Lab assay of single mutants.
Amino acid sequence: TYVQALFDFDPQEDGELGFRRGDFIHVMDNSDPNWWKGACHGQTGMFPRNYVTPVN
């Protein structure tokens, strides 16, 4: 499953995934309602669910 970033996200903690608005992120785990795990630009980490939108 892929999502697209609605906003820039700069990691604040180790293990978070940084990205820029418009980036596509491969979702690896969406079991938590607020923080998902994904991959983008060769990196993996957690990111806030409300920063992304589903891609059809």
Results as ranks from 00 to 15, higher is better:
residue 40 C to W: 03
residue 19 F to L: 06
residue 47 F to P: 00
residue 17 L to Y: 01
residue 26 H to Y: 12
residue 27 V to S: 00
residue 50 N to Y: 08
residue 7 F to W: 09
residue 46 M to E: 06
residue 13 E to A: 11
residue 41 H to W: 05
residue 39 A to F: 11
residue 50 N to E: 13
residue 20 R to Q: 13
residue 47 F to C: 00
residue 30 N to R: 13
residue 24 F to K: 14
residue 29 D to S: 06
residue 16 E to A: 09
residue 42 G to F: 03
residue 19 F to S: 00
residue 55 V to K: 12
residue 3 V to Y: 14
residue 22 G to V: 03
residue 40 C to N: 05
residue 5 A to G: 06
residue 2 Y to F: 15
residue 51 Y to L: 15
residue 43 Q to R: 14
residue 18 G to D: 11
residue 23 D to T: 05
residue 7 F to D: 08
residue 43 Q to K: 14
residue 18 G to P: 13
residue 29 D to Q: 10
residue 2 Y to D: 06
residue 20 R to M: 10
residue 38 G to Y: 00
residue 38 G to P: 00
residue 4 Q to N: 05
residue 12 Q to S: 13
residue 8 D to Q: 05
residue 32 D to M: 06
residue 42 G to N: 11
residue 8 D to P: 04
residue 43 Q to M: 15
residue 54 P to E: 08
residue 47 F to S: 03
residue 8 D to C: 04
residue 5 A to P: 01
residue 15 G to Y: 10
residue 45 G to L: 03
residue 6 L to V: 10
residue 46 M to K: 14
residue 15 G to W: 12
residue 23 D to Q: 06
residue 25 I to C: 01
residue 1 T to Q: 03
residue 15 G to L: 06
residue 32 D to I: 03
residue 38 G to M: 01
residue 47 F to A: 02
residue 8 D to F: 01
residue 56 N to T: 04
residue 30 N to D: 14
residue 16 E to R: 12
residue 23 D to S: 04
residue 2 Y to H: 07
residue 18 G to C: 10
residue 21 R to P: 02
residue 11 P to M: 03
residue 30 N to I: 06
residue 51 Y to R: 12
residue 46 M to C: 08
residue 42 G to P: 01
residue 55 V to R: 08
residue 28 M to A: 08
residue 21 R to G: 07
residue 46 M to R: 13
residue 37 K to D: 02
residue 44 T to F: 08
residue 39 A to M: 13
residue 55 V to A: 11
residue 7 F to N: 07
residue 34 N to I: 12
residue 34 N to P: 01
residue 14 D to I: 14
residue 24 F to D: 04
residue 9 F to Y: 13
residue 18 G to Y: 10
residue 4 Q to I: 13
residue 29 D to A: 05
residue 41 H to F: 08
residue 21 R to D: 04
residue 44 T to A: 07
residue 8 D to K: 03
residue 38 G to R: 02
residue 17 L to M: 08
residue 11 P to Y: 02
residue 52 V to M: 01
residue 41 H to S: 08
residue 39 A to Y: 11
residue 8 D to M: 00
residue 12 Q to D: 10
residue 53 T to L: 12
